[in-house]
Design a binder for these strands. Structure first.
Lengths: 338, 338
DNA sequence: CTGAAAGCGCTAACAC
DNA sequence: GTGTTAGCGCTTTCAG
């Protein structure tokens, strides 16, 4: 809380006008004479006035606060997404309060409630898997507009923006198949989560379209961290010949796999083809550079902001699901160079 | 803004008590009979009441909001720090509004002002280099408590928490020197910034203590990104024999250097010893695993929260600078294994 | 222990 | 164009 008790009346007194004139002037209302405005602005600046938005919001019964809830900021992909989202909203004049949930449902419920208590106009969220609108709003913040990004909220009750995971996964798998690999693996991601299921579905679709039996392929889920992926592939390497190509659930997984392969005496892009998903910044500055699926994070963020802002303006608009078509970025890791 | 117009009077009516009794009950005041409290809580829950903190703060003339301002969330080190900071503050019952500045001074001034307008109780910031308290508070938010982390605010006007960069850098350089390297380089970081100067000073101190002439060493600053570091070392590699060991300004730089060396036909940890700084999560899941300087991010975050909270309680307390002693984590990248 | 009344800083009709 | 007046939802003396 700023100590300053400089308020509208103070400015009014200094400028020799009334409280409401000051209010109008500060909002740059056309009802106020330019000269008066100048006088008011000058007095405000002189006195070191700090606008009190909470008071204004209270009176106006609306706010420009957007609550942003991110599942895991230490995951570089979500950090990139968070930054893009923040920019999209601030570009539209909103201010975003941001919170990290560390994939913790309790924490998530808590921060959403806190945002609601601070009169957030709406929420943009990468929800913890398994989140439903009901629990998110605790039956008590009904009508709080929410848009989810990347991961859907159960029950289809919220606007949702995501990449076309199936198409992206299918395309990157096809890119591998074209090279003649027949023993593939899909590695990483958490079983029974929507993103995992979609990316896996794309993988399977490509494989079966290529006329390859799924039995020759391996499916190895694991938590979305470098450590987990590394551990998994190291164990796997001990158990016999590796697949020729590994489609990873995400770039983070792919980095872990690359590391694990190295520890097991194999090289990604040489002994085994590896692909990622998300196309985060690091992909290009990594040896081997990582083939990945670019999902247009900035575009996702832009759509999320547009979607939420539209809903704020028209709460009755039908719920919308928007999908962005990704693009395969071929780099070294997927082209074997023996 | 939550649509709900459920307010204290509504609950009061439902529970058959007065507005103020409800307020007290909600705050769990000892002045209210347990039975009454139960009645009130029940009514509140039934009606789907959402506490309005903005209104409460307005009346109480204080708030539990902390504004967190981070220079670059896409840098994994700062993302880790941000998460740690957020946790420290929320653990103490504060709610943090977070904003990313992308190292943009204008953006930084804007978000600090916005936080002030939202009645933030204080600010925790990783400032853009060159930030002064004066400009941050625009001469108008005087007295807004600010604690800076990692990077100092000019003029020593704010509490400041940081690792002992000199000691950390000196220690990791010494670790290299002990192995007998004589041609070292200090790579990365932005010239004339305090963190750079400190880390470079530690490097120089170790070198001169080892009786080595600084002339045999190279100093190659560059922006703190993987890309910039990679580009720099690739250029450098073309110009003649590389140093035997490279002390990097940060882990991000070290990752870039490792990549660039690889592109130039050299291996970190084999042809050239490389060390990082910050000890971010990736260090262990990287080939070669990266020797780094662990700076106890959680501890920095904890001190930052304590420091800011103390100041909120006692605005007159003297400004404090706290330093945390880092620790060298020796891994593969710095032990040549030819 | 509970109620009545005042007011935080601001906006928004509605007068003048 | 500008001033008056009445609150937004809450906390907090102060009575009772």
């Amino acid at each position: 809380m700023t100590k300053t008790s400089i308020t509208l009346p103070d400015i009014a007194a200094a400028a020799g006008v009334s409280k409401s004139t000051v209010s109008l002037a500060l909002q740059d209302s056309p009802k106020i004479k330019p000269e008066t405005k100048r006088k008011v602005l000058k007095a405000a600046k002189q006195l070191g006035y700090v606008y009190n938005r909470a008071a204004a919001n209270l009176r106006r019964r609306s706010s420009e606060i957007i609550g942003m809830v991110i599942n895991d900021l230490t995951n570089p992909f979500f950090a990139e997404l968070a930054v893009a989202l923040e920019r999209s909203f601030t570009d539209s004049g909103y201010v975003v309060m941001m919170a990290n949930t560390s994939e913790d449902m309790q924490q998530q419920e808590k921060v959403v409630r806190t945002f609601a208590e601070h009169s957030a106009a709406g929420i943009v969220i990468c929800p913890v898997f398994g989140t439903s609108y009901e629990q998110l709003t605790s039956h008590t913040m009904k009508g709080l507009p929410i848009v989810s990004v990347m991961r859907p909220i159960e029950g289809n009750a919220c606007d949702f923006i995501s990449p076309d995971n199936i198409a992206g996964s299918q395309a990157v798998t096809a890119h591998l198949l074209v090279q003649g690999f027949t023993r593939l693996a899909f590695l990483g991601g958490i079983d029974n989560t929507p993103v995992y299921e979609s990316r896996l579905a794309g993988f399977k679709a490509a494989v079966s379209k290529a006329g390859i039996a799924m039995e020759t392929c391996e499916i190895l889920p694991c938590p979305p961290t470098r450590e987990a992926a590394a551990k998994l592939i190291i164990e796997r390497a001990k158990q016999g010949p590796l697949p020729e190509a590994i489609v990873c659930y995400s770039d983070v997984i792919a980095f872990g796999v690359t590391f694990g392969l190295d520890r097991s005496g194999f090289k990604a892009g040489k002994d085994v083809a590896v692909t990622g998903f998300d196309d985060i910044q690091g992909c290009n500055v990594f040896s081997p550079s990582l083939t990945s699926v670019h999902i247009y994070t900035d575009q996702l963020a832009k759509l999320a902001a547009e979607s939420l802002i539209s809903r704020l303006k028209d709460p009755e608009r039908p719920i919308s699901n928007q999908t962005v078509m990704p693009k395969v970025m071929v780099r070294e890791s997927s082209i074997l160079n023996k």
